[in-house]
Amino acid sequence: MTIKLTSVYVDDQSKALRFYTEVLGFAKKADFSNGPYRWLTVASPEEPEGTQLQLALNNNPAAKVYQEAMFQQGQPAAMFYTNDVKGDYEQIKARGAEFTMPPTGVPGATIAKLNDTCGNLIQLTQLARW
C-alpha cells in the first residue's frame, strides 16, 4: 500500500489550477473530463511521480460548511513540505498570494500559512534540522 493521492476541495477548478501551478509552482499531472465531472491533479515538479494533489470541485453542501469552518479557525486544508520556507514565502508572495501567517517558528519547524483563493488555507512547513 502507498499513499499516492490526497485531495483539497476548491470552489473553482480552473481558478485552482492557475493558483496551484502559477502561484505555488506545482505542475498539472492529470486532467480528465467526463461531462460535468473533471478529474484534476497536480504534482510537485521536484517529485513528478510523487503524491498527487487532487483539486476536487466542492459542490457538496456539507463539505462547504466544513471547509468554511476550518478556514475560519485557521486550520490548513493541506500541508506542503519545503527546505526553504522563507524563500518560498518571498517567491509565492511576489506572485500575488496572501499569507495569513508569515514564516513563524514553532517547536520543531518553521511554518507559514497562505490563502489559496479557492476556500482553503495552505500550510508550508520546514522541519528544523536536529
Partner: peptide, 10 residues
C-alpha cells in the same frame, strides 16, 4: 494531450 508528465518550471 491534456495529460502530460509535470515538467520542472523553476
Amino acid at each position: 494531450s491534456a495529460n502530460q508528465a509535470p515538467k520542472a518550471e523553476h
